[in-house]
Design a protein around this nucleic acid. Structure first.
Length: 278
DNA sequence: CGGCGCACCTGAGTGC
DNA sequence: TGCACTCAGGTGCGCC
């Protein structure tokens, strides 16, 4: 599930429970994720250290330690970070768990193991973070995300606008669900070549992106009270999706049937009435 | 360089 | 009940 809103909701849920806590121990399942777990660094840099802020950049969660080291978590397709009483039995597909001095454990669960966990050692954290930030795209909820910036990025690109929005080297945090929902909101066909969009259309993309992402974060935020509850679900929201997964159902705006196509290996949905063919 | 296909994994759903 | 097949919210590599 995790696109920017789910990652941000996870961050918001974790932050108050992690900040100021000490990591007492660290354990792992023995299975590798997308990359092998950095066991030695976790032991050397994280265990016995106090946690500071929890930040987000793109789809990554950054757990900052008081010794300046950073745990970088990517949730992949099925990853979840949750807090559980240390006495509760671990679940299938728990791959990393950090015992905290609060009696809770921070657990990373990921059935498909497309997620990743990295550690930046304190001594190199500054340089590594700089390089990391430079490799990321524009943050859609920051001031840098403007129609002008997108217009410049898209200049002369034939890449369909949907793939453009999902290219994380250019723009951070937008995945398949939100790319579809944003383009529906903006009345733009997903196959439109990015370089052909007008300034006015980029304006619509900027507004639609902010609206859709903010709404999703707010919807997720409403369930955040459960964050450390028995369910242990990190508050994934249930946004009212307008087009994603809704082929054949009437468009909420014009009533025409939503169409599904395949684009660069991923499914796309759009309304042929409201999102005119390029 | 840009764009696409595919591999990396497990699990859920469907159809026979 | 079992099996074969498709699809899934992400990313990065190799290939053209």
């Amino acid at each position: 599930m995790p696109e920017l809103p789910e990652v941000e909701v996870t961050r918001q849920g974790l932050q108050p429970h992690l900040q100021g806590r000490r990591v007492l121990a660290c354990h792992w399942s023995g299975r590798r994720l997308r990359t092998p777990l950095p066991r030695k660094l976790l032991g050397d840099e994280i265990v016995n250290q106090e946690i500071g802020r929890v930040d987000r950049r793109a789809k990554y969660i950054l757990i900052r330690m008081a010794n300046r080291s950073v745990v970088l978590v990517h949730l992949g397709m099925t990853g979840r970070l949750g807090l559980f009483p240390a006495t509760r039995a671990r679940a299938r597909h728990d791959h990393l768990w950090l015992r905290l001095d609060s009696g809770f454990e921070l657990r990373f669960n990921d059935s498909r193991r497309f997620g990743s966990i990295q550690v930046w050692p304190g001594a190199q954290a500054l340089q590594l973070e700089q390089a990391f930030h430079q490799a990321q795209g524009l943050e859609p909820l920051e001031r840098e995300f403007t129609a002008n910036a997108l217009d410049t990025l898209a200049h002369n690109r034939k890449k369909p606008v949907k793939n453009f929005l999902m290219d994380n080297r250019l723009i951070s945090g937008i995945g398949n669900i939100y790319a579809n929902e944003i383009l529906y909101q903006a009345h733009i066909h997903p196959l439109s070549p990015a370089g052909n969009l007008t300034k006015g259309q980029w304006d619509q993309v900027v507004h639609a992106t902010r609206l859709v992402l903010h709404k999703a974060i707010q919807a997720g935020g409403t369930t955040i009270a459960d964050f450390v509850s028995a369910a242990g679900k990190p508050g994934y929201f249930q946004l009212q999706l307008q087009v994603y997964g809704r082929e054949g159902t009437p468009c909420p705006r014009c009533g025409q049937a939503i169409v599904k196509i395949r684009q660069a290996g991923r499914a796309s949905w759009f309304c042929p009435g409201c999102q005119p063919t390029p």
